[in-house]
Design a protein around this nucleic acid. Structure first.
Length: 470
DNA sequence: TGAAATGTTGGGGCG
DNA sequence: ACGCCCCAACATTTC
């Protein structure tokens, strides 16, 4: 008697190790592994250009791991899965849960459909250390402040699942396989080649990155992670987003690497990821709506010119332009610099955080609905447990403090290379002869600052004060 | 995971 | 030796 077929539907769990749903499918029968590209149902958060490139390569890698058995589709999952049920003797369908509102809605619908058809459906937790609904205050409401969420909620709850091994898999063959190319994820212009050159994509590369980080980077994580020129951040975010690595694998590997403040600090950053998911889970409007509704009356400016200058790294503020170019060139930006460019957009330019969120969404290889939305609300001061609005970063001071030798800034803004450290972060104040010697003509070889730091800070405080009165 | 304004302290130059 | 002033260094408050 032949085994029934168990479909494993890959989504944001593009790995075979520590994959609870895949392991379960493997025990239920011959596995038919599928991926469905269906993000046209994602509303205004269809996958961004950088993420699509990453996905393309990650799917190729996963398919290779699966011996070429990954069945790839594009379109409406309801119709696609129905079709598969007709063509194969399917006994069960398995997946790991997603938490984006549109995906939860989709999954609920498909689950109901399958149950009605008499097919077993099993969903698992494959991408969070703790389910959002498992971490709540004693009164049954969700946490709104990170520290108690993490300390009292997460750390006091049951320990996260220990990572699972790679299961033994026997595959069901698909009738007419489609290649990853059919998804047309790559852009027509070839910018993606140089971007992707900064990364190794796929499960094996993710494990290697984790290993390398724990070997060298984590040792000075707590302080080192603030310095963008240093290699003390994990750079695991895109791997985690696509599920090439599970947070459980990262968590337990870090725990096994030692017991120090440094490692606790790294684990608490995984905790911030959990916190973001909790905020999204309990506030489906997080990507669009201010968590603090008093910000609904905030007098955002609408300057297209300023937004473009920010996007195109032509603000005339060196550390800001450096960050925006890192984003454009590599699909990534160091966290410290994300805070600096975010503060600059929202406070010095007085532009709506949603404009920044949208740009990051398109450009980041680690674009993640929960983390991106929660972090922008944090920067803008309108989120839960957010940075107070009056906490305005001074991009000159931040540059001097966190890129003291200017390596990061000079790497991405080479036209300022010749400026001595003293003036690197404020070329507009440099004496003429210093500029001349560095071969810089402000307004020609590098822009004049598009706003005055001090004056714009003052305007931001006034705009914020106007909220309190109402 | 701020920055700037304001307040306080203490060492040193100087008459 | 003493008082006075300056100002750097640090602390506190305010946005």
């Amino acid at each position: 008697m032949t085994q029934p077929t168990a479909i494993h539907w890959f989504r944001q769990d593009l790995r075979v190790s520590d994959n609870p749903a895949l392991s379960e499918a493997a025990q239920s029968g011959r596995v038919l592994p599928i991926y469905i590209f269906d993000d046209k149902y994602a509303g205004d958060h269809a996958m961004g250009a950088a993420s699509r490139v990453w996905l393309h390569h990650s799917l190729i890698s996963l398919n290779k791991t699966l011996g070429g058995h990954l069945a790839i589709f594009k379109g409406d999952p309801v119709a696609i899965i129905k079709q598969l049920l007709e063509e194969h003797d399917v006994g069960s369908v398995h997946w790991n849960r997603c938490y984006e509102p549109w995906r939860m809605k989709r999954d609920a619908k498909i689950k109901a459909m399958l149950q009605e058809m008499g097919v077993d459906v099993h969903s698992q937790n494959g991408s969070l250390l703790w389910e959002p609904w498992a971490i709540q205050k004693k009164d049954g409401t969700p946490y709104r402040v990170f520290t108690p969420f993490y300390r009292k909620g997460c750390l006091m709850a049951a320990a996260p699942r220990q990572p699972l091994d790679i299961p033994e898999l026997s595959f069901e063959k698909i009738k007419k396989p489609q290649s990853v190319d059919a998804l047309a994820l790559l852009p027509e212009r070839s910018w993606s080649n140089s971007m992707i050159g900064h990364w190794d994509i796929g499960e094996e590369a993710a494990q290697q990155r984790l290993h390398d980080f724990l070997q060298s980077g984590v040792e000075h994580y707590k302080e080192g992670r603030n310095f963008p020129a240093k290699q003390h951040v994990s750079r695991l975010s895109p791997h985690l987003h696509f599920g090439e690595l599970s947070p459980n694998q990262a968590w337990y590997a870090a725990r096994a690497a030692g017991d120090s403040d440094q490692i606790d600090c790294f684990c608490s950053e995984l905790g911030w990821r959990e916190f973001s998911y909790s905020l999204l889970y309990f506030n489906h409007e997080l990507p669009k709506k201010n968590l603090q509704s008093k910000f609904d009356a905030f007098p955002w400016k609408k300057s297209k010119k300023h937004l473009q200058a920010w996007q195109q790294s032509q603000t005339g503020i060196p550390i800001v332009d450096a960050g925006m170019r890192e984003l454009w060139q590599t699909g990534y930006m160091h966290n410290r610099v994300r805070m600096i460019v975010g503060s600059f957009l929202v406070k010095n330019l007085l532009l709506d955080w949603r404009a920044g969120e949208a740009w990051f969404w398109d450009c980041l290889v680690d674009a993640d609905l929960a983390s991106n939305s929660a972090s922008w609300q944090w920067v803008a001061g309108c989120g839960a447990d957010a940075a107070p609005y009056f906490r305005i970063f001074n991009p000159v001071t931040q540059g001097e403090k966190f890129d003291p030798q200017g390596e990061y800034t000079r790497q991405f803004v080479p036209e300022l290379k010749g400026l001595p450290d003293k003036w690197l972060f404020k070329p507009w104040e440099a004496p003429e002869e210093v500029l001349a010697q560095a071969g810089i003509v402000l307004g020609e070889t590098y822009p004049e600052p598009i706003v005055d730091i001090k004056a714009s800070r003052q305007l931001a405080l006034e705009a914020f004060a106007s909220l309190k009165k109402t």
